[in-house]
Structure formats: structure tokens, C-alpha cells
Computed example of a mutant assay.
Amino acid sequence: MKTIVVCSGGLDSVSLAHRVAAQQDLAGLVSFDYGQRHRKELDYAARCARRLGVFHEIIDMTAIGAHLTGSALTDDIAVLDGHYAEETMRVTVVPNRNAIMLAIAFGVAATRQAEAVAIAVHGGDHFIYPDCRPGFIDAFQAMQDQALDGYASVKLLAPYVNGSKADIVTDGARHATPFAETWSCYKGGDRHCGRCGTCVERREAFHLAGVEDPTDYEDEDFWKAATAAFQAEEIR
């Protein structure tokens, strides 16, 4: 199945690209510049495309992103430290982001005669991001079936939607994903900070998967305290 992967350059989407390249016909990668805090992850998406020998398109959505304000990913709002699943991480929500990106990706797929679009949403995203949940994936497919009726048939693939970040690490390792060539940190410094929600989630996922984490963190051990504090709060 000729498939286009929505690739941010993060661990999840790069692992998905390697999975698709191994199991299907990877046509190319589509990334989005929506005015996020840093473009560093897009560089890693470009590296992934070169490594896998496929096209890479970066869609300029900065004009749209300028209207999707109020998120720590787009505005000058502090990225808080702590566990990814905490309520405080809602500050990283960009309204309707996946719906907008997928609508464009489906248009690209139809134009390029691809049969599928793949996205790396996973179970750990469900608490914070409504457009990462199974209900959204199913509804979006139904909408696109109508939008492209008679013109193209494009399937939405979300193989991780009911899995965990640790499951993605396991799958990525199975398909020889070079994890060091992915970027997760929200802060976009020279090294992963090791303290923001996505760094904590990344470090915890490698631990749970039993896979060596090659990531260079400024704070190697913060994730332990952050995870313990979150678990204690859940028990209360």
C-alpha cells in the first residue's frame, strides 16, 4: 500500500516511517511548519526522508498557526516540567492541529495517488489531545470517505492509536529506527532538556520498553522523580 507518513521528526513519527518503509510502500513524508516554538524537529524529519530515500514536503502553515494561539508550542508561554500526562500539559494543545494537518495530508495523498496516510498518535496522547483518540481517527476517516468520494480512496492508518509510547519504542527498535536521530523536547535547545513533559515521557518509554535510550539529556534523572510524583498523585 503506497503510504505517506505525517512526520514531525519526533520519536513516534520517525518510528512509524521506518515501520511503513519495512512493511509497506513508503511514498514520502509530509511535515508541517505551523509556527511552533522551534523548527529543530523538522530537520530530523528531513534527515529521515533522506535516510529512507523518499520525498519530503514541509507544508507552510505559519499563517494559520498565527491564529491558533494560546499554546506553549506556538506562543511565548513557559513549557512546564513534569510528567506528560499531568493536567498542566494541556498548555501544549494546539486546537484542531491534527484535523488540519490530516486534511492537507489527505489532499497530498490524493494528488500523488497514494493509498494511505499514516499518523503516529498513540494511547498516551488520549488524555490531553482529543484529536489523537480512536473516535477522532474513525470520524476523520468517515469524513474523508465523503470528501474524496469518486475521486480517490485514501485510508488513515494509526497503528499506535491504542498502544503506549513504550510500544512505539519496541516497534521502532524492531525496525532499526535510529532513535538518536529523532527530536522530542519542547524547549528546542542544543540537547533534550530531560525535564519537560515530552522528555519525561520519552525517557520513561525507553525504560518500560527495556531498550537503551541513546538520547543526550541535560537532566538524566528528573524523569524518575516526575514519574513517581505522578503515580503517587494517581493513587490519591
Rank of each mutant, 00 (worst) to 15 (best):
D131P: 11
G70C: 10
C48P: 14
L208D: 15
Q141A: 01
V6N: 09
V117E: 11
L16I: 05
A229Q: 04
M89L: 01
G135R: 02
W183S: 07
S153C: 03
S164Y: 02
S8C: 15
D131R: 15
K224F: 03
A46L: 11
D213R: 00
L52A: 06
N162E: 12
Y44F: 15
A226P: 01
L52Q: 07
Y186Q: 04
A139D: 00
G197M: 06
A147C: 15
M143A: 15
A114S: 07
M101W: 09
D219S: 06
S15A: 14
D12M: 01
A139N: 01
A72F: 03
G172L: 09
N96F: 13
F140E: 06
H126K: 06
P159H: 06
N98H: 12
T182Y: 03
R133S: 05
A147F: 02
V14W: 03
G35K: 10
G150S: 13
C185I: 03
G70E: 00
H207P: 01
G150P: 14
A78F: 02
K2C: 05
C48R: 10
G70D: 05
A49K: 02
I4L: 09
A225T: 13
P159A: 08
V154G: 13
A180I: 08
A209D: 12
K224A: 15
I128Q: 14
T74V: 13
R90D: 04
L26N: 05
M101R: 08
E234N: 05
I235L: 12
L68E: 00
F106W: 12
R51N: 14
V169M: 08
E87A: 12
I168E: 15
L157H: 05
A63E: 15
E181R: 04
A49H: 09
H18P: 14
Q36T: 09
I58N: 06
I119P: 01
T3E: 02
G65V: 06
A114F: 04
F230M: 08
E57I: 10
Y151A: 09
M143H: 03
Q141L: 00
S153F: 00
V6D: 08
E218M: 12
Q36I: 10
D33S: 09
G150R: 13
G107R: 13
G82M: 00
T227P: 02
Q144C: 11
D12P: 05
F32H: 08
G194F: 03
T198Y: 03
K155W: 01
E181C: 06
T215C: 02
T62P: 06
P95C: 05
I104F: 12
S8I: 03
V79A: 13
V161D: 05
Y160T: 09
A205K: 04
A152F: 02
R97G: 01
I128N: 11
Y160H: 09
D76E: 13
Q24F: 07
Y129C: 06
D190Y: 03
G135V: 10
I235D: 08
K155T: 11
L16D: 15
F106K: 05
L102M: 12
E201L: 11
Y129F: 14
E41S: 07
V6I: 05
R37L: 08
A180M: 03
A205H: 05
